[in-house]
């Protein structure tokens, strides 16, 4: 792969576009905060942008592209932190990711598997109407942003980019079972978030 040529092309494209310049600045701020190192942050942002550009055509909406590129960035940062886990105290991002992976099932289901009463799916009012509403899409975006990095990335690869499970497993270096678990949890979380913040409320919150 001509990585350098690719990087330059992406770089040139991004410098010409106020939208991406803005995204890049936000990504750098986020990555620097998480990694505590400007050089590593720069690398992670660059890699995430290049990774995101591979599937850029899957995104007609800019908000969707932004969510996508941040999902990749979080994934890169988690990889970085994992790699130097023995050198520094375990980082908050990684803690959160693992904890939330384990906790979501316990928070939704009782021991043995039935829904907790207060977590049972409710009737969703008028999804078609929601899709016409800009406020709904802001809610949707914010629910996606609150997914743990790996879940967000797997979900978006599957549902935004439309990749098959085998491709996603290759890309993320995980087993099919692992992907199934990850997608299941991502969908449970998104469903819950959308219901709580939109579909079940009397009024939008």
């Amino acid at each position: 792969m001509p990585d350098h040529a690719n990087a330059e092309a992406v770089d040139a494209l991004f410098r010409n576009d106020a939208f991406v310049v803005d995204i890049r600045r936000q990504m750098l701020r986020f990555a620097t905060l998480q990694l505590g190192n400007a050089d590593l942050a720069e690398d992670a942002v660059q890699e995430a942008l290049i990774g995101a550009m591979k599937n850029a055509r899957s995104f007609a909406r800019r908000a969707a592209f932004k969510t996508w590129v941040f999902a990749i960035l979080k994934h890169k940062i988690a990889d970085q932190l994992r790699a130097r886990q023995r050198l520094v105290p375990v980082h908050r991002l990684l803690d959160d990711e693992q904890a939330s992976d384990d906790e979501i099932m316990d928070s939704l289901f009782k021991r043995g598997g039935p829904w907790r009463r207060e977590q049972r799916p409710q009737h969703w009012r008028e999804p078609d109407e929601a899709m016409q509403d800009q406020h709904f899409w802001e809610t949707f975006e914010s629910c996606l942003e609150h997914l743990p990095g790996r879940q967000a990335r797997a979900f978006m690869m599957r549902e935004f980019v439309g990749l098959e499970t085998a491709e996603i497993c290759r890309e993320l270096s995980i087993t099919v079972t692992n992907l199934n678990v990850t997608l299941h949890r991502a969908r449970l979380r998104l469903r819950e978030c959308l219901e709580n913040h939109w579909f079940a409320g009397d009024r939008r919150s």
Binding site: S58, A60, P127, M131, F140, L144, M156, E159, F160, V161
Partner: peptide, 9 residues
């Protein structure tokens, strides 16, 4: 459906 619409596809 929501995910695909959000992505714009």
């Amino acid at each position: 459906t929501l995910a695909r619409t959000f992505a714009g596809t």
